[in-house]
């Protein structure tokens, strides 16, 4: 069993005095770094660090069949894996509810933002592109939602588009880019007693009462997810929406300036 380095009282007292363990302000992100194209075998990839949280996203495309109810659209398949390598508290085996929630929340932001036009992934009747987004957690220290979404957005916006020659998928050589119509990012807030912080780290997540993730593009909110047994007041949420729009500018800048 993992040992927590702080008690709940310690974190709550600290926040009540207006401070966080690593010296950040309540609405500060940790140091963010992005390495795009970290795994060149994948069509797109990005290795993202939020402090000690590290997430790698790999994007692959392959030929598949459309869903019966959407015969003219390609498939977007997002999954998250909490690798046991990343934390003593992650276990090997089938995906945990936490991993499934993470994958689905990241998926919703990407899907609803129209970032990927699934109709453009249509090849011919009965044949479409499957677009796989795999969110791989390499080290856990809180806020996998925002790091995962940022990594996924970066990986998608730098991905190459394979082409089909007969039955063969060509993944190397002179290829165009995957068409991306939009950029989505997310902001995750933790409520600990009466205080709300942005980008909770592992110790803060261990003692948060409620969590909320808001994914947006430049214009509108695209996905939200509230988690845990605590609650937010409507006024609090309205305020957090403003902050999200403000902070997402910062996140989009990180994507734009990301290096290989």
């Amino acid at each position: 069993m993992q040992i927590r380095t702080v008690t709940g009282d310690y974190i709550r007292d600290l926040l009540a005095s207006g401070a966080r363990e690593d010296g950040r302000d309540m609405l500060d992100y940790r140091r963010i770094t992005i390495k795009k194209g970290a795994v060149p075998n994948a069509e797109g990839s990005a290795d993202v660090n939020f402090g000690n949280t590290r997430v790698l996203v790999g994007v692959k495309l392959g030929v598949g069949e459309p869903m019966p109810d959407k015969p003219n659209e390609g498939n977007l398949i997002t999954s998250a894996e909490l690798l046991p390598l990343a934390s003593e508290s992650f276990e090997a085996g089938p995906p945990s509810p936490e991993a499934i929630e993470l994958g689905r929340v990241i998926d919703r932001g990407i899907r609803s933002s129209g970032m990927i036009d699934t109709k453009a992934l249509f090849i011919e009747e009965g044949k479409v592109w499957d677009l796989f987004i795999d969110v791989y957690i390499l080290n856990y220290d809180g806020n996998l939602f925002d790091a995962g979404t940022l990594a996924a957005s970066t990986a998608l916006s730098t991905a190459r588009m394979p082409k089909l020659e007969g039955e063969e998928v060509i993944r190397e050589g002179n290829l165009g880019k995957l068409k991306v119509n939009n950029i989505v990012t997310s902001c995750t807030f933790a409520k600990i007693a009466e205080n709300i912080v942005l980008d909770p780290d592992g110790n803060e997540e261990a003692f948060m009462d409620a969590r909320v993730t808001m994914a947006n593009d430049e214009k509108v909110i695209r996905a939200m997810q509230k988690g845990l047994s605590g609650s937010f007041a409507p006024k609090e949420l309205e305020n957090l929406l403003d902050i999200t729009f403000d902070k997402s500018k910062e996140l989009r800048k990180h994507i734009e300036s990301a290096k290989e």
Binding site: V39, N41, A42, S45, L56, G58, V59, K60, L61, G62, S79, E81, L83, P84, A92, P94, D130, F132, D134, Y136, V169, R171, E172
Partner: peptide, 18 residues
């Protein structure tokens, strides 16, 4: 010991997880 390949590790199709 648990050795695993990521589903995006190869230049070929997306691999299976698990």
């Amino acid at each position: 010991c648990r050795y695993q390949m990521s589903p995006f590790s190869s230049l070929e199709d997306h691999g299976r997880t698990g």
